[in-house]
Amino acid sequence: MYRQKYLFLLPGLLVLVAIILFPLLFTIRVSFSSWDVYNPGLNWIGGDNFTRLLADSRYWQALVRLSLLTLATVTLQYVLGFGLALLVWRDIAARRLFRVLFLVPMMTTPVVMSVIWRTIFHESLGPLNPILDALGIGAQPWLSQAGHALAAVMIVEIWQWTPFMFLMLLAGLLSLPQEPYLAARIDGAGPIRTFLSVTFPMMAAISTGAILIRLIEASKLMETIYVLTSGGPGTSTETTSYYIYIRGMRDFQIGYSAALSLTYLVVMIVSLTVIAKALTRMVVKD
């Protein structure tokens, strides 16, 4: 009789198989095939795709670039998000208005925002360069030089996702107990020491959560690159996801892109697990 309970698990199990297990197993199988525009199908070629990707410097460069971009943008998002959250945490004028304003970027569709930013960064038609000119800084080759293009991608990412950090950290700040602050004032801690010794450590758990979520999300960076730079100039802003997209959807090298995807998945799982454990160890000391 009790076996019937497993029947109720069946719908969930089917959905799980359909959306996670089957695509994953199929991708594994495809990665061992030569499926491309000339040879469609699951022709077994062993580990040839994996041997090829080991020598694919463009892929590894994209992975390193993605890692650096992710670390830099998430760090800046955290610092800015924390700063903004601290700003509206205490009683300041128009606090509610600021709270809503700071969230606007996150409420906008990423692709739409990227199109708007592309217009802003446009070197001859965009509004940014005339402003920089007027300020005496001079027009910048935002999307036509490698360094500038990377900076442009970072600006858009930070602008788009700092509100997420802001929201998470503000929620954390608002949930902090007030008593330790009273104790800190009596115990001789000024505002800066109170932040370093009370606020920051008490925010460690929520900070870890927010950073991990953003690291996972940022490691999938794709649409901003697609709309803003298309990986260019050259391959200077190409990230792993974008490179896999090019190999799979533009060059139609399905077998090879499946091998790239699987390798990327393993690298991400391993590195994010290591980061998560390191961050968690910092938070839970006892």
Binding site: P180, L182, A183, I186, V198, P201, M202, A204
Partner: peptide, 14 residues
Amino acid sequence: VAMVTQQFINYPHL
């Protein structure tokens, strides 16, 4: 000044 209040006020993270 040192102060002890009605509530048990300590630093929960230390």
